[in-house]
C-alpha cells in the first residue's frame, strides 16, 4: 500500500500543478451553464423568438422540466464524459512521452505497475471530480432557471442514473491509457477517443450499441423501452472486460515495451 500511496501522491502533485486541471474544470462548468441557458430560452418564448439559431437549438431540449433536464445531463456525461475523461487519461499517461519524462519513471525502486495504477487512481479522482462539477453546476442552473417538475423521486432517479452512467464512462479510460503508451504521446489516444465516439453513434443507430463498449454508457441514458436501444447483461460484461483489457494492456506495455522517450 505504501508504494501505491507514494506513487499516488506524486501523480497528484503533477496534476494539481497543471493548467490542464483548470482547463477541464472550466469546460465542465461551462457546459451545464450553457444547458441551463438553453432551458431558460425554452422556458421564455419571448426571448427565443429573438434568438433565431440559438432558439432552434434550444427547442431540441424538449420539455423544460427536471426529468428532461436530467436526461440532458445524463447524455452529457456519456458523450462529453467520453471525450473529457478520455482527454484526462490521454494527458496523464501521454504527457510522460510528450514531455519526455517517461525515462525518469522506468528505473526506480518502485514497480512500474504501481505507477500505472496510481495514474489510473488519479484519473478516476479527477474524472469523478469533473462529474460532480457537471451535475452540481447543472442542478444550480436548473434551480436558478426555475425548471418545473422537481421531486425527490426525480432527483434520486436522476442522480443515480447520472453517476452510474458516469462510472460506466469512466471504465473506458483504460484503453485510452494504453494508446497513450502505444502512440507515445497525447495525439494517438485523443484520436482514439474521437474515433470511438463517432463509431459509437453509428453503431448505436445500427442497433448494435449494446455490444460496442463506447456506445454502452450512452444507451444507459436512453429512456427504458426505446426500441433497439436497450442494454443486456452481456453489455455490462463487455464494458468490464474492455476496462480490464485496457488496464492489463497498459500494465503490459509499461512492463514489456521498449521505452525511448
Amino acid at each position: 500500500m505504501k508504494n501505491i500511496y507514494v506513487a499516488f501522491c506524486c501523480e497528484y502533485k503533477k496534476v494539481s500543478h497543471s493548467k490542464m486541471l483548470w482547463i477541464t474544470i472550466v469546460l465542465f462548468t461551462f457546459i451545464p451553464m450553457m444547458m441551463g441557458l438553453m432551458i431558460y430560452v425554452v422556458r421564455h418564448p419571448e426571448i427565443s423568438a429573438k434568438m433565431g439559431l440559438i432558439a432552434a437549438k434550444a427547442s431540441l431540449f424538449g420539455n423544460a422540466d427536471w426529468p428532461a433536464f436530467f436526461g440532458i445531463l445524463h447524455q452529457s456525461v456519456a458523450t462529453i464524459g467520453l471525450i473529457g475523461y478520455g482527454f484526462v487519461a490521454a494527458w496523464i499517461f501521454g504527457r510522460e512521452h510528450s514531455e519526455r519524462t517517461m525515462k525518469d519513471l522506468i528505473a526506480l525502486p518502485i514497480s512500474r505497475s504501481y505507477i500505472v495504477t496510481a495514474k489510473f487512481l488519479v484519473a478516476i479522482v479527477w474524472c469523478l471530480f469533473l462529474s460532480v462539477i457537471l451535475i452540481a453546476v447543472g442542478l444550480m442552473m436548473g434551480k436558478w432557471v426555475g425548471i418545473s417538475g422537481w421531486s425527490h423521486e426525480v432527483f434520486v432517479h436522476g442522480m443515480t442514473k447520472y453517476f452510474v452512467t458516469s462510472f460506466m464512462t469512466l471504465l473506458l479510460i483504460t484503453p485510452v491509457a494504453f494508446f497513450a503508451g502505444y502512440g507515445r504521446g497525447i495525439i494517438v489516444p485523443i484520436g482514439f477517443v474521437i474515433i470511438t465516439l463517432i463509431l459509437s453513434q453509428f453503431i448505436a443507430i445500427a442497433g448494435f450499441g449494446a455490444f460496442f463498449p463506447w456506445a454502452i454508457p450512452g444507451l444507459n441514458t436512453v429512456p427504458e423501452g426505446t426500441e433497439g436501444m436497450q442494454l443486456f447483461p452481456i453489455s455490462y460484461v463487455i464494458l468490464v472486460l474492455t476496462c480490464l483489457a485496457g488496464y492489463l494492456g497498459t500494465l503490459a506495455w509499461w512492463r514489456f515495451a521498449d521505452h525511448h522517450s
Binding site: C10, K13, H17, E99, R100, K103, D104, A107, L108, P109
Partner: peptide, 30 residues
C-alpha cells in the same frame, strides 16, 4: 535500481513544477 542513479540523453523535468518539487517527487519515488 535502489543503488543506481542515471541520466539518459537530454534531461527533462515536469515543466510546471519547480526544481525543488521535481526533486521532491524523485525523493518520494525512491
Amino acid at each position: 535500481w535502489k543503488d543506481i542513479g542515471y541520466l539518459v540523453e537530454v534531461p527533462y523535468a515536469y515543466s510546471e513544477l519547480t526544481v525543488r518539487e521535481n526533486l521532491e517527487i524523485v525523493r518520494r519515488l525512491r
